[in-house]
Write a protein that binds this DNA or RNA. Structure first.
Lengths: 213, 213
DNA sequence: GTCATTTTGGAATAATATTCTAGAATTTAA
DNA sequence: TTAAATTCTAGAATATTATTCCAAAATGAC
């Protein structure tokens, strides 16, 4: 019995403006971009609202009107990054016509996204979930589930045709992107010199060997 | 020419007590344990110095005397966790007598450590480097390098004997623990139901297949 | 144009991290 | 054993930073 007003959607706890004004998207993006720069330069914990205010040109009131807290800004960036990558991957997968192509595309797209957006990736690896708001947590969870479902559907025919080893599905994602992800993490933090790009094909091939029958 | 006084060690920028008193270790550990509990329950950003003070029984002064900042406490925990795991892995590896044993031991030890210390692991995955002090950053870097060297030495004979595929060494670590690490991250955050333990052997076998010739 | 709603600015407030100092406890040196 | 030196503790005082608040401006609907 925790339902609220019967009139509203499931996600309308907070005041969601009926109409978003034209300049609003722009301002929000200014804030997000400024925040990303700050987070990358100083880390989330060390960047202050005031830095974001200065960097974005928005006022404190505006900042809080649009996002509600510093953490929420970080979370929004996190989610935005994930969505961007998911979207890209889906597009790439649409064109694949074999299990091998698909597997390698997943790994390659992952590596390329990181190589193309190293700052963004550094932020995402660095922030890892911490303190998502209820609403955002939910959104991320749904995005994730939808993404997994998409992958599962994509793979199903090949699995049934015996073109892939029959691992539990939840393990597939880890087997495919785990190695590249770990390498990327160390590379992004400066502990490894050789850029991820140099090993993209290596990780693609290794992944395919792992799951090919 | 950034050297300091010629008398002191390389790492003596800050006041390192000549002698650590007997009860000091105890108090420090009380603080660390209390902080870990707080961090796990509320996340790093949301735990306050006051919570740690209450939970540990130490005074604010004591907290700052021993650690200097909240972030430094988190960093100390991070480093301590890594050291614990490194130590365990080294012990396990000492007893291995073949490439296959070694590879699987690395993966299995990794999985078991996470399964045995899920809270600790959750904290480590969740905190990811952010804001280490200069001194701590350095220590972590050295620990890491030493660990990598140890692994490289351990593997060398088997590599030379052709019992392992000739990948660049920096890639080995990622190929071996990457998948388990990714799975663990999702499991620890509650997105996956099946415990890591259920797939430990799967990850061990997959890792061995990846690097065996 | 008027009205309702959204957005902005920035001062006021609240929450929290950090510094500081006096003194207690412990070790060292004699 | 004692005095001096050092390390540790306590908690009030201070500084920093996040968040709230509300009056005014901008915008879009009618």
């Amino acid at each position: 019995m925790t339902k609220t007003s019967p009139k509203s959607d499931a996600t309308s706890q907070k005041k969601m403006p009926k109409t978003e004004r034209s300049k609003t998207r722009v301002r929000k993006d200014q804030i997000l971009e400024a925040a990303l720069r700050c987070f990358i330069d100083h880390g989330i914990a060390a960047t202050t609202i005031d830095m974001i205010r200065l960097e974005s040109g928005a006022s404190v009131g505006s900042l809080y009107h649009h996002f509600g807290s510093k953490e929420a800004i970080a979370s929004a960036l996190y989610i935005q990054g994930m969505e961007d990558h998911f979207h890209l991957l889906r597009e790439s997968l649409e064109e694949c016509r074999s299990a091998e192509q698909g597997v390698k595309t997943i790994v390659r797209t992952y590596c390329e996204w990181i190589s193309d957006h190293p700052d963004w990736a550094r932020f995402i690896f660095g922030s890892r979930g911490e303190a998502l708001s209820e609403e955002q947590e939910q959104k991320l969870r749904e995005d994730n589930k939808a993404h997994m479902n998409f992958l599962q559907e994509w793979f199903r025919p090949y699995l049934e045709a015996g073109e892939l080893q029959d691992y539990p599905f939840s393990v597939y994602h880890s087997l495919l992107v785990g190695p590249a992800q770990d390498y990327a993490k160390h590379w992004l933090s400066g502990r490894l010199k050789k850029p991820l790009q140099d090993y993209t094909e290596l990780f693609c091939n290794a992944a395919w060997e792992t799951v090919s029958p």
